[in-house]
């Protein structure tokens, strides 16, 4: 479903050309839960940007759902993100003065969906992400970190994306809440979602089925995770 072939990415700064990704190739099947792991500066964030259609590769191809999206103009990329990708960020990126429900429904607004449908789907997504209904009308600034990340996960799920991309989703959380969030991803995976987790922590990566290790812009390891850690997000 995801096919990355010989993807390179260069950043030019004046006359200096820095090659961040040096020909990365891999495939991800529908329903997989993979972790992309690497130290900072390894190129994993750049890879995530390309996977999330926020950026395009300098060379090589990236196909999502059978469509090559490696050379699309910006607005086309925006449409791909709107339809197929759900992002979960380390910093949550919620609108602080808006209610939980409005935050979650925001992607559907850009999809042009009616209010009633938006709110219905936002509620479903929130319940799927484990945030009980009584908090749906709270302002996001009133929530705890764990709750904020659940809202962000719900927002990533609301457009029923082909992949959920989580960039260091536990980075701003204490370990107990972090485990709960990882449990949520595992439950979503069990329900058939394709989840890609980007992290520098082996502990976090060990929750995935498969681990890709990136170092200095190259894919150095692609292995099945034999000793998978399991978490539950039961509250």
């Amino acid at each position: 479903m995801i096919e990355v072939k010989n993807v390179t990415k260069d950043y030019t700064n004046g006359n200096d050309v820095a090659r961040i990704l040096k020909g990365v190739s891999f495939q991800v099947q529908k329903g997989e839960f993979i972790a992309i792991m690497g130290p900072s500066g390894s190129g994993k964030s750049t890879l995530m940007h390309i996977l999330g259609a926020l950026d395009t590769p300098t060379d090589g191809t990236y196909s999502l759902d059978g469509k090559d999206i490696s050379a699309l103009p910006e607005d086309e990329l925006a449409r791909i993100r709107k339809a197929k990708i759900g992002f979960v960020f380390q910093a949550f990126h919620l609108l602080p003065r808006a209610t939980v429900l409005r935050n979650v429904a925001l992607p559907l607004l850009y999809a042009g969906m009616d209010r009633a449908d938006r709110e219905g789907r936002a509620k479903e997504a929130l319940l799927a992400a484990g945030l009980e209904e009584e908090r749906h009308l709270h302002l996001t600034s009133q929530l705890s970190g764990g709750q904020m990340q659940r809202v962000a996960i719900a927002r990533a799920l609301v457009n029923d994306p082909a992949i959920v991309l989580a960039d260091e989703p536990t980075g701003n959380l204490d370990s107990k809440t972090g485990d709960l969030v990882l449990g949520t991803f595992q439950r979503l995976h069990a329900q058939g979602r394709t989840v890609i987790l980007i992290t520098h922590e082996p502990y976090v990566a060990e929750h995935a089925e498969r681990i890709l290790v990136i170092r200095d812009g190259e894919l150095v390891e692609d292995k099945k995770n034999a000793h998978r850690r399991m978490q539950t997000d039961a509250i």
């Binding site: 926020l54 607005d75 449409r79 910093a91 609108l95 925001l106 999809a111």
Partner: peptide
């Protein structure tokens, strides 16, 4: 800026 980035990430086009 971060809000704009988020809106772009979840699919807002330039015109929007």
């Amino acid at each position: 800026t971060r809000e704009i980035g988020l809106r772009q990430a979840i699919g807002a086009e330039k015109e929007e």
